[in-house]
């Protein structure tokens, strides 16, 4: 008996091949260990780790999270145990659980990015791609985020890729306005793909104490509240055909995931939904399959960017 084949879910982001388009966003999934207790996370297209720096980073003053309407403000401050902890403490179980992993990294200056890249060379066969978190402050430029400088985006991408020879994804921040120039800079630096959007800057205050609700005053907004912002950015960059896009920002359901794909995302990232529904990854993946089957779509690639075909100008 011939087993009926399901729809093709394989997608390529440049040289990065994924078995399916469902991945997790940095900072919302650790390196996967906790979620492996709920479902088989090797079934995901990939897991993006929390961002690692060269040395351990303590993180921001609490309170670090604040719930807002349909979303979450956070100012964790990139707390992490350093890249060596990733190699020593996380990589063994990542390999054991058979997770396809995208390693997210950040630095406080270009030299730190370079040093981290050198630390990664010996584990490059264990990582399918690197994601550059360029929303962190560049201490050499008075704390301005790297993503505000097209030169920084290009140079860091170029250097990291040269050193590691691993595919590079550049994560773009919506806080700089138009994302076309940052995306072009990523391409010029040799990036294989872009992921968007990172969180949107926000703040909240307590009307009784008059104090900010976050220790860091400002934080990043995520959750369903930011989804339309993300969809617009994905749609605009897809039309410009700069680099393959991983769409993320407020995805809560499989319907949201499909919406990102028809807007132009080749893969989709699940972020803060992981905090609410620990099974989100596998549920969204299974439901995308059902959606494609119900519509007699045999290849998921055929829905990517379909919204552009429907819009007459």
């Amino acid at each position: 008996m011939v087993k009926e084949k399901g729809p093709n879910l394989k997608v390529n982001l440049g040289t990065i091949e994924l078995d399916n388009p469902v991945i997790t966003c940095s900072g919302t999934f650790s390196s996967g260990l906790e979620y492996g207790k709920f479902y088989d996370i090797s079934k995901l297209g990939a897991v993006t780790t929390k961002s690692f720096s060269l040395k351990p980073k303590k993180g921001n003053e609490p309170p670090r999270t604040c719930e807002v309407a349909c979303g979450l403000l956070n100012s964790i401050g990139l707390q992490n145990d350093g890249i060596n902890s990733f190699k020593k403490d996380h990589l063994p179980y990542i390999k054991k659980l058979n997770i396809r992993v995208i390693l997210s990294i950040f630095g406080q200056d270009i030299a730190e990015f370079r040093k981290i890249a050198k630390e990664i060379v010996d584990i490059r066969q264990d990582i399918i791609a690197l994601e550059l978190n360029l929303s962190c402050p560049n201490v050499e430029k008075g704390g301005m985020a790297f993503c505000t400088s097209t030169d920084d985006i290009k140079n860091i991408t170029h250097e990291v890729k040269q050193i590691t020879k691993i595919p590079v994804i550049v994560k773009l921040s919506p806080n700089v306005g138009d994302l076309s120039m940052p995306a072009i800079s990523a391409r010029e630096g040799g990036a294989d793909a872009i992921s968007l959007i990172n969180t949107v800057i926000g703040a909240a205050f307590d009307i009784d104490s008059f104090k900010p609700k976050l220790g860091n005053i400002q934080g990043g907004l995520s959750g369903p509240a930011v989804k339309p912002i993300a969809i617009a950015n994905v749609y605009n960059l897809y039309k410009e055909n700069i680099l393959p896009i991983i769409g993320m920002g407020g995805i809560y359901s499989w319907e949201d995931a499909v919406e990102f794909m028809i807007a132009g995302a080749k893969a989709i990232g699940l972020g803060s939904v992981n905090f609410v529904n620990y099974m989100a990854g596998i549920e969204i993946l299974e439901n995308i399959k059902k959606y494609l089957t119900s519509k007699n779509i045999t290849d998921i690639n055929s829905i990517i960017g379909r919204a552009s075909d429907k819009i007459k100008r």
């Binding site: 919302t28 906790e34 993180g59 609490p62 670090r64 979450l72 964790i76 707390q79 905090f275 620990y278």
Partner: peptide
Amino acid sequence: EEKMACGIGVCMGCAVKIKQKGGFAY
């Protein structure tokens, strides 16, 4: 008690300062 986002150790949102030699750790 602390406000939490994930509750399972992933998000690092419910950080509290615990005294350690030479300072504190979250």
